[in-house]
Simulated assay, not measured.
Amino acid sequence: MVTKSVLVSGAGIAGPALAYWLHRYGFRVTVVEQAPAPRSGGQAVDFKGATHRLVLERMGIWDEIQRRRTGRTDVVYVDDADRELAVMSGDFTGGDVEILRGDLTAVLLERTTADCEYRFGDSVTALTETADGVYAEFANGPAETFDLVVGCDGIHSTIRRFAFGPERDFVRHLGYYYCVAGASAYGMSAGHTERGRALAWNRPGRSATAGGSKASQLYLFASPELDYDRRDLAAQRQLVAERFAGVGGGVPGMLAALPTLPDFYLDSLSRVDLRGKYTRGRVALVGDAAYGNTLGGVGTGLAVVGAYVLAGELAAAGGDHTVAFAEYDRIMARYAKIAGTANAGRFLAPRTALGLRARNWFLGSRAFDLMLRYADKAVNDIELRDYAVELGLVAER
């Protein structure tokens, strides 16, 4: 069994998923997370296809995800009088199974906190690679040396910046911002398996969606890159209110409720492009830090598959990161193409009235069904090694 040490930055989804597999293969794992505690709630995330299910079953968490799942939610686009214009099926937005991000994180933490060291309320402030490891400095603790470092810290990854370079070199702004507020993106809560319904109001370049009596909200709006204080939530709420001022339908009621809703989050729609190279030296990236595409619909699945592949390749290579990282890059460069060039902003909030009408037509067309079939095929377009069987940790399956 391997006994190398690995520092994982980020305790969202990719980080704990990677920690699970690394510990199973004998690595010593430390996970550092800037937030003071695990985040609860958050928007809904989903898994789709046999590949995602296979990884979750091998982790032993598929049944628990099913228990905590939310119901699918149809998004109904309406005019200002709430007359139906088009419907985006919950089968498209919710995959095969949907779960709140915070609930998924809780499931992963439940299976890793006893075996891996978690340090909440801390972050990496510097990395220095040496011949024998990576010297990591921390905001709130003494420096340490690890054999490997993995960034699972999202599109705005600090680890990527240290190892690869400035964010502007690898992250492309897609011309839109999004805001989520409330228990989930569309208002379904854990354990609710009935089908939900959310209403969406559009203006060119703007979309506002509400579910659960406006207790959960999703906003999208077209905009060049903005300069705002990420710590000033009140100012961010005001920014959203200004962007949607004058939009009719249910939007005034949404904006009235916005100041009181928890789990507020505003960020740009962005896509990470590392050109298929997610490793450098002794540092690797997993999840949105490596192949993120905001609201692209496959980010969570890519994160758990990427964590499975990286840990498995490291174990199969006996901890030799030079061999394992090359294989991880090769496998994920092909599979991560599923994130592709999609821009959810253009689809959910077209910039012109003609674009809105075309989108509404598309949702009810045969072309939309064909797109769904293509997406289903793409998420399964990978052959996963059964690393645990190869390493003799479990019997032949």
Score class of each variant (00 low, 15 high):
residue 4 K to H: 09
residue 4 K to I: 02
residue 11 A to V: 04
residue 24 R to F: 08
residue 27 F to E: 00
residue 29 V to F: 04
residue 32 V to F: 04
residue 35 A to I: 15
residue 36 P to D: 13
residue 38 P to S: 15
residue 44 A to L: 07
residue 48 K to T: 07
residue 51 T to N: 03
residue 54 L to H: 05
residue 54 L to G: 03
residue 56 L to D: 03
residue 58 R to H: 08
residue 59 M to Y: 08
residue 62 W to M: 09
residue 64 E to D: 15
residue 65 I to C: 11
residue 71 G to T: 06
residue 75 V to D: 01
residue 78 V to C: 12
residue 81 A to I: 05
residue 84 E to Y: 05
residue 85 L to S: 05
residue 88 M to L: 15
residue 89 S to K: 11
residue 97 V to A: 15
residue 97 V to H: 13
residue 100 L to F: 08
residue 100 L to Y: 02
residue 102 G to R: 02
residue 102 G to I: 05
residue 102 G to D: 06
residue 107 V to F: 03
residue 111 R to N: 13
residue 112 T to K: 09
residue 112 T to I: 07
residue 116 C to A: 12
residue 117 E to R: 11
residue 117 E to S: 10
residue 117 E to D: 12
residue 123 S to T: 15
residue 124 V to A: 04
residue 127 L to F: 04
residue 133 G to N: 13
residue 133 G to R: 06
residue 136 A to K: 00
residue 144 E to S: 05
residue 144 E to Y: 06
residue 144 E to M: 10
residue 145 T to P: 02
residue 145 T to V: 08
residue 152 C to W: 00
residue 153 D to F: 04
residue 159 I to Y: 00
residue 160 R to Y: 08
residue 168 R to P: 09
residue 172 R to P: 00
residue 173 H to L: 11
residue 183 A to Q: 12
residue 183 A to Y: 02
residue 185 A to M: 12
residue 189 S to A: 09
residue 193 T to E: 11
residue 193 T to C: 13
residue 196 G to N: 01
residue 199 L to T: 00
residue 203 R to S: 13
residue 204 P to I: 04
residue 209 T to W: 03
residue 215 A to R: 14
residue 227 D to F: 06
residue 228 Y to T: 06
residue 229 D to Q: 06
residue 230 R to H: 07
residue 231 R to P: 03
residue 231 R to Q: 10
residue 232 D to R: 11
residue 239 L to W: 07
residue 239 L to D: 05
residue 241 A to F: 06
residue 248 G to D: 12
residue 250 G to H: 08
residue 250 G to D: 10
residue 256 A to Y: 07
residue 257 A to T: 12
residue 259 P to T: 05
residue 260 T to C: 10
residue 261 L to C: 11
residue 262 P to T: 15
residue 265 Y to D: 14
residue 266 L to I: 07
residue 270 S to A: 14
residue 270 S to N: 11
residue 271 R to H: 06
residue 271 R to W: 00
residue 276 G to T: 02
residue 282 R to M: 11
residue 288 D to S: 09
residue 291 Y to A: 04
residue 292 G to C: 03
residue 295 L to A: 10
residue 295 L to Q: 12
residue 296 G to Q: 03
residue 297 G to D: 01
residue 301 G to E: 05
residue 304 V to M: 01
residue 311 A to E: 00
residue 312 G to S: 06
residue 313 E to Y: 11
residue 322 T to C: 08
residue 326 A to P: 03
residue 326 A to M: 09
residue 332 M to S: 00
residue 336 A to K: 05
residue 338 I to T: 09
residue 346 R to C: 13
residue 353 A to I: 01
residue 353 A to H: 04
residue 357 R to D: 13
residue 357 R to A: 14
residue 358 A to H: 09
residue 360 N to Y: 10
residue 364 G to Q: 13
residue 366 R to C: 02
residue 369 D to N: 08
residue 370 L to F: 12
residue 371 M to Q: 14
residue 371 M to A: 13
residue 372 L to Q: 13
residue 376 D to Q: 13
residue 383 E to Q: 11
residue 386 D to S: 14
residue 386 D to Y: 14
residue 387 Y to R: 10
residue 388 A to H: 08
residue 389 V to W: 12
residue 390 E to Y: 01
residue 392 G to L: 15
residue 393 L to D: 02
residue 397 R to K: 15
